[in-house]
Measured scan of single mutants.
Amino acid sequence: QVNQQQLQQLMDMGFTREHAMEALLNTSTMEQATEYLLTHP
């Protein structure tokens, strides 16, 4: 289960819902999730 607010923040940054969910499931903080998305295009 992912934090919906964090998911929305990542989608607002331009990431897809699927990619943002993957990042949130594989990390524990927003900072890590953002870094994950930038390093796993």
Rank of each mutant, 00 (worst) to 15 (best):
Q9W: 00
Q32H: 08
M30R: 08
T16G: 12
D12I: 06
H19Q: 13
T27F: 09
Q1H: 00
T34F: 08
N26P: 02
R17Q: 05
E31Y: 01
L24M: 08
M11K: 12
Q1I: 03
T16W: 01
E18K: 09
V2P: 03
H40S: 13
M11C: 03
Q6R: 05
A33M: 00
L25D: 13
V2T: 04
M30C: 11
Y36M: 11
A20Y: 00
Y36V: 08
T16M: 11
T27Y: 05
T16S: 12
T39N: 09
D12M: 07
Q8I: 04
Q1K: 15
H40L: 14
T29V: 03
M11F: 05
A33Q: 02
L24Y: 09
Q8E: 15
E18S: 05
M13H: 06
F15N: 14
Q4I: 08
T16F: 04
Q6D: 15
E22C: 04
M11A: 11
S28R: 08
Q4Y: 02
H40F: 09
N3I: 03
E22V: 09
E31M: 04
T16K: 13
L38A: 15
S28F: 03
R17L: 02
M11N: 04
M21L: 11
D12S: 09
T39E: 10
E22T: 09
T29Y: 01
A23L: 00
D12E: 14
T27C: 09
M30I: 09
Q9R: 06
E18H: 02
D12P: 00
L24E: 03
L38Y: 03
L7C: 03
L24F: 09
M30Y: 11
R17T: 09
G14E: 10
T34N: 13
R17W: 02
N3F: 03
E31S: 09
Q32G: 11
M21Y: 07
L38E: 15
Q5I: 12
A33R: 01
M21I: 05
V2K: 13
T29D: 11
E35S: 13
T34E: 15
L38T: 15
T27S: 10
L24I: 10
T39W: 04
